[in-house]
């Protein structure tokens, strides 16, 4: 119990610092005056002053921080200063889009990786080849891979519409691109773990007792490898989050990643703050869940 509490406490502290850091980081940015950017052409100093006080940008840093925290607790994330939309609404709308990409990607990574790992273990002859493919594909930078897939499948073979967000088929290419690097990781871990486990005594005992091969692998081996797989997937989540930036950019997928890229390129402070917050929260949450699952699966960890 203390293990979980401790982890939770640490997460809260991390969260607090993330909020603070993101707030101050934005104000140190040499990017430009958000107020001027909002107002566009033909305005006077008076207009600028008025808007600035309206947004509360003319008060001391500490007061602004206080207002910011208060707003956050109410659930108000502010409005974009470039395009003037309500940030929370926009994030709510886009989150499921990115989430669906991520979920499909993780599923592909999991199944694809395990299958590849199994293939490698049991068909030793082509093992090294698969190994090479796995490492090779996992190393290709996400944005480059995305471009290759767009070119190859979209232009050359004309298999799928290259952008847009409606319908199932559209989900596949970007998810696939996202999934490939994590899939390589999963495959590699599967191979390592399977080798480890299959060499152990209790497996030989199972065989001796007459269990069929498939059952041995399925029941004993994979289950034990599960822990490492979970941990690997959780690490891959970080890769995934970073990857969504590029994948959404290339495929024009209107999710959180695209929102983030635009906000960062345009120095859209309120949006950057919100994205930073959401990213950190998801990250911390996933870590928390992983630690929790870890604790469940292997109580020894909790010491």
């Amino acid at each position: 119990m203390t293990y979980h509490l401790r982890k939770f406490g640490q997460s809260l502290i991390a969260l607090f610092f993330v909020v603070t850091l993101s707030f101050f980081l934005i104000y140190k940015a040499p990017a430009g005056d958000p107020v001027k950017t909002m107002l566009g052409f033909q305005v006077t100093e008076e207009d600028v002053q008025r808007l600035r006080s309206e947004l509360g940008l003319d008060q001391s840093l500490v007061i602004q921080y206080y207002i910011y925290c208060k707003r956050l607790l109410k659930g108000n994330l502010g409005r974009s200063i470039i395009s003037d939309f309500d940030i929370r609404q926009e994030i709510t709308r886009r989150f499921p889009l990115t989430l669906s990409l991520a979920i499909i990607a993780i599923l592909i990574a999991l199944f694809g990786g395990v299958i590849l790992g199994l293939l490698n273990t049991f068909y030793r002859s082509i093992g090294p080849i698969i190994d090479f493919i796995i490492v090779g594909i996992g190393s290709i930078p996400v944005f480059y891979l995305g471009l290759i897939i767009v070119w190859f499948f979209g232009y050359w073979l004309d298999l799928f519409p290259i952008s847009g967000y409606k319908g199932g088929m559209n989900l596949l290419p970007p998810s696939l691109v996202l999934a490939l690097a994590p899939m390589a990781n999963v495959a590699r871990i599967t191979v390592i773990k399977l080798d480890q486990i299959l060499g152990q005594d209790f497996i030989r005992t199972a065989y001796a007792m007459g269990f069929p091969r498939r059952k041995v692998i399925g029941k004993f081996a994979l289950k034990n490898a599960l822990l490492s797989l979970v941990s690997s997937l959780s690490n891959s989540f970080a890769l995934l989050l970073g990857g969504t930036f590029f994948v959404e950019y290339i495929f024009g997928w209107p999710g959180m990643g695209l929102l983030a890229v635009d906000a960062m390129l345009n120095y859209d402070y309120p949006v950057i703050q919100s994205i930073v917050l959401i990213t950190a929260v998801s990250f911390i949450t996933i870590n928390l869940i992983t630690d929790f699952v870890y604790g469940l699966v292997d109580p020894r960890v909790m010491e």
């Binding site: 001027k36 566009g40 345009n266 859209d268």
Partner: peptide, 12 residues
């Protein structure tokens, strides 16, 4: 730069 920065720079 990005267009919003260009505008800002133009003003200043």
């Amino acid at each position: 730069v990005q267009f919003p920065q260009l505008v800002d720079l133009a003003f200043k």
